[in-house]
Every structure is written in C-alpha cells, then in structure tokens.
Amino acid sequence: MGTGFVHGNGSSAQAALAAVLANPAIWRGRDCAPEPAALATGFGALDAALPGRGWPRAALTEIVLEREGIGEVRLTLPALATLQRDAAQRKRDVVWIAPPYTPYAPALAAAGVDLARLFVVQCATPQEALWAYEQALRAAECGAAFAWLATDDARALRRLAVAAREGRTFGVLWRRPGVAARAATAALRLRLAPADGRLAVHVDKRRGGELAQPLVVDVDRAHAHRAGLAILPRTASRPAPADAPSLPFPTAPAQWAASA
C-alpha cells in the first residue's frame, strides 16, 4: 500500500519508511513496549514472547497457577541465578515472602541459586506479608522479590506494582486462578498449566500485542547460564489413565489456598 505514490526504486522507499518507523513515537500493533533492562529467562521460546526478551526487571509479574508442583519455580530459577551472579548489579539479593512450602536448599543450589543471598520470610498474617513484600520491592539491595499472597485488594496490588517500579525490582506475585478475569495491575501476567510433562505458559497480559497460543517450555532445559552445572536428566512420565482418582494433594497454608 502507498507504494504507488513513490516513484523511484523500492529500496530507497523502504529505507525512508524504516527511518520514519524508527522514531520512538511511532508504535505499531505488534510491537512490544521497550524494556531496556530485561532479565533473560533462560528459555528461548519464553524470551521471544516477552517484551525486551526477558522478565521485566523493574515491574511486577503475576504468575497464575492451579497448583504447585508443575515446574513453576523452575521457570524463574535461571533468571534468579543470572541476577545473583551479575557482579555489575548492586541489587542481587532474592527474597521469598510466605512460600507455601519449605524451599528445598539442595535443589536450589543445584539450580545455581546463591543460597547466601536468598532470604525466606515467614509471616503470621497477610498484612505482614503485604508489608514485607512492599519493603522488599523497594529495598535497594533486593534484586528479585517473590511473594505467595492471597490478596485481592486492588489498592494493595497497585501499591505493590508501584513499589516494584520505583524500587527497580523483579517482583513475582504467585496467584491462584480466579483472578484472571480481573484487570491486572502487573506489567506481565502469565498463566501456567502442565502440558504432558512440560509447562504450558499462557501470556495473558504483556506490554505488547496479544499472544493467542501458549508457549510450551521444558523447565529442565534452560540454556546458557548454567555453564559447568549438569543439566538434570528428566525421567519419562507415563500417560495418565483418564479416570484415575485424584491424588492426595497436600493442603497448602490457609492464606495461600484462600485466594480461590
């Protein structure tokens, strides 16, 4: 379209068009918002789908999942390991607020996480957890802050989003489904589901165009950052019989379970 008005050779017209489109004020529907300091996820397919090719380093990310144990944390561990090794950064501490179970140190160490820079915060009430999370997001030395919160309070979520932006912290808020219908204050919202031994990542919201298809990620096959660390072998899983009884899924702490 429009080429009919341009008399001359096509390549110079394209160059002129490219020059116009390079103007940062021009935004096209399929573009993603610029994310200058994204944190590579370690998974090529996921990087390609996220603005700036990585986790937003100064924003809140919501990750929605039905239940634990589908590889959700392993999706974020390569990024944490990268963050903690980045000597140029001052913000290298990682804080986990109110995780639903005990984080198991040998697995974290095997994934390359520096345990000396990982702090696990246990809170007695949801208010304390909210307070602690905001403090962590704003802290100068905290590079990533994860929280397992059951809050639905839009104002609190907005506050957390602002804290993550101002504190320039990679914040992940783990949530239960049921919030998907509500407007997200976070910059990025992912929905995770198991997909035949791998992990299907639905990008529900990102700063950019819509993404219709879920990405399928093998969370045990992160690339690049783990030089010298063995990549864990994955045991084959057998297909499930359709009418198998549901297994005794351990009950989660009340505040986390109460979100649904």
Partner: peptide
C-alpha cells in the same frame, strides 16, 4: 556497596527474629 543488609534488619525488627530465614544445603 553497603556492607549491611538493612532490608533484612527491618523485616526482623517488625516480624520477629525468627521470621527471616536463610536456607543452606
């Protein structure tokens, strides 16, 4: 780089001594 960790101290002061844990393998 500041050698202290004020965030951890603030969390401990408010939430109690045993609330901020470090895990080790």
């Amino acid at each position: 780089v500041p050698t202290t960790a004020p965030l951890v101290d603030r969390l401990r002061a408010r939430l109690g001594e045993g609330s901020v844990l470090r895990v080790a393998a």
